[in-house]
């Protein structure tokens, strides 16, 4: 079938080729056997299989949303009520298990660290579609890390949604490496007073990978803060569409938002489209966005090569330097090693 995913919150001219991502000949799996290769590491978090039905504000399109809500072969409700609770969930794709549709609801009642990792031990084309919802409580400090390391034949769809209460502080980190097509949709509803949502993403596109990134933050409460920082590298014939929206709603007095996107292009055939939107119906705000793209800075390259590194090594180093600021947020050292290894391999 043909589906359209990742629709922008505000449409613009069709000729600009960014309103949505059209996918042809895509099979949406159903009647799935439960996904078994899941590792859940936690101490006291309560984990169950009851997830409330919920209509996403944005999401990755009706077809994928229904698929995740009705056909999921992994349903997890994570409840954390102890301060500093850590939960790590690792899904590993294998030759036997190539389809994962997961529906995750996270409810935090205290500070928490949640990590969700998608690994792959197979060369087969896999399919992954998910919905991850995060509901916070006032004053929570919540870190969420999502790591996509699928192989480059696979389809990867993810819809994330957060709602933030008074003084909640969410740090969300997305490491988006795998997938022939990777379409990620993210929505933060920053409702509570002085709530802060800080999203940082790394993506890496090689071969013919397509990255379709659609991030939206609504700033509603007074003195709320919303940050979107996306750092990416494209090589070969990879293609990236970035759509980022900061929407300052009337009443969000004293709100601040910053959206920053940088794309490093390593090949003349790589393509980068960016649509960084600022929408605003409140005067007492500070909103900024900046996007930039271009090739590796030649001065840095020359400097590093003058210290004995090959061009390839120098580029890797520069890319790593760009990513480091975001990678710092991955506290699990083994996972960080895996990610760095994956990035180096792909480059």
């Amino acid at each position: 079938m043909e589906i359209k995913v990742n629709e922008t919150p505000v449409r613009t001219s069709r000729n600009f080729r960014i309103n949505n991502l059209k996918l042809e000949n895509i099979e949406i799996p159903n009647n799935l056997k439960p996904f078994k290769n899941i590792e859940i590491i936690t101490q006291k978090a309560e984990i169950s299989n009851n997830v409330r039905k919920y209509k996403l504000e944005y999401g990755n399109g009706a077809v994928l949303e229904e698929n995740a809500q009705n056909e999921a072969n992994s349903v997890l409700n994570i409840k954390t009520s102890r301060k500093g609770e850590k939960v790590t969930i690792i899904y590993t794709f294998t030759d036997e298990e190539t389809i994962l549709v997961n529906n995750i609801e996270i409810n935090t009642y205290k500070d928490a660290d949640i990590t969700i990792v998608y690994k792959s031990n197979t060369d087969k084309a896999c399919f992954h579609n998910s919905v991850i919802r995060l509901n916070t409580s006032p004053e929570d400090k919540v870190n969420v890390n999502i790591v996509n390391m699928l192989n480059n034949k696979s389809m990867h769809f993810e819809s994330m949604e957060n709602s933030l209460e008074d003084n909640t502080n969410v740090k969300y980190t997305i490491i988006d490496l795998g997938g022939k097509v990777s379409a990620t949709n993210y929505f933060a509803d920053i409702i509570g007073k002085e709530a802060k949502n800080d999203l940082k993403t790394i993506y890496l596109g090689i071969d013919n990978q397509v990255k379709d990134i659609n991030y939206i933050a609504h700033l509603k409460g007074e003195k709320t803060e919303g940050y979107i920082d996306v750092q990416g590298v494209l090589n070969d014939e990879a293609k990236k569409n970035f759509k980022g929206t900061l929407d300052f709603k009337r009443g969000c007095k004293g709100a601040k938002g910053d959206e920053n996107e940088f794309c490093m292009l390593l090949s003349p055939k790589a393509k980068s489209i960016a649509l960084p939107m600022l929408l605003c119906t409140e005067d007492d705000v500070e909103g900024n966005h900046s996007t930039a793209s271009g090739k590796v800075d030649e001065k840095s390259l020359f400097y590093i090569m003058s210290r004995g590194l090959s061009e390839k090594e120098a580029i890797k180093l520069i890319v790593r330097a760009r990513f480091n600021k975001i990678l710092e947020r991955i506290k699990d050292e083994d996972l960080l090693k895996d990610i760095v290894h994956e990035i180096d391999n792909r480059l």
Binding site: G251, S272, M277, T291
Partner: peptide, 28 residues
């Protein structure tokens, strides 16, 4: 606080040897 201001720029870069930058600000 009753007015509206939106910024909707599409930046489509199809090759590497370019210098492209875009900055936007909104406020009172």
């Amino acid at each position: 606080g009753i007015s509206r201001s939106d910024t909707i720029p599409v930046n489509d870069v199809e090759t590497d040897d370019v210098e492209f930058s875009h900055e936007a600000k909104i406020g009172k």
